[in-house]
């Protein structure tokens, strides 16, 4: 049950900084789960804030925040994407790029509320499906997504590239 003081709303400019702080926590959490997952660079949060700022004016993107008494405790970023439309008879689909809820507020339905609002926005744009990536080591996230009915379709794998150079 979502705390009645939590409101999900579209992000505005003043939310960009707290969203970037949540993003930093997300990156740290991922790296703690799996050292393969990248760490943030110095100033990474500022770069991310600029990205979010850009998305606020993008009609094909949606940034939502969970606001608890004026404090941003979670956010989700979704975008409309095309999947090689010439080759697939699939209408554009949605991509959930990032989602994070402050760990102190988890388990109360805030994440679900964010996803439902984003899903509604996708549906309003005539998008039938949306996709996202989950860190393989993030079991809590899997439980969350499975509870919503998410279905894994692909595995993203990562490998180091040999440093040695070969023939030119």
């Amino acid at each position: 049950m979502v705390d009645s003081a939590v409101v999900v709303r579209p992000a505005v400019a003043r939310d960009v900084k707290p969203i970037a702080e949540l993003w930093e926590a997300l990156v740290d959490m991922h790296h703690a789960l799996d050292a393969q997952l990248p760490q943030a660079v110095e100033g990474g949060a500022a770069q991310y804030a600029r990205r979010i700022e850009d998305q606020l004016g993008n009609p094909m993107a949606r940034v939502l925040v969970a606001d608890h008494d004026g404090r941003v405790i979670g956010y989700v970023l979704g975008v409309v994407v095309d999947l090689l439309p010439d080759m697939f008879a699939q209408e554009p689909s949605g991509f959930l790029a990032d989602i994070y809820v402050d760990e102190r507020y988890r388990g109360g339905g805030v994440g679900r509320e964010l996803v439902e609002h984003l899903s509604q926005w996708f549906a309003d744009h005539h998008i039938r499906y949306f996709e996202w990536h989950v860190a393989s080591q993030n079991r809590d996230a899997f439980d969350f997504w499975e509870s919503l009915g998410g279905r894994p379709v692909m595995v993203r794998m990562r490998a180091s590239v040999p440093i040695s150079r070969i023939r030119p």
Binding site: D34, G149, G150, V153, V155, R156, R158
Partner: peptide
Amino acid sequence: KDFEQWLILPS
């Protein structure tokens, strides 16, 4: 190595 799963859900 696996690092992310790609999931899908109807809107």
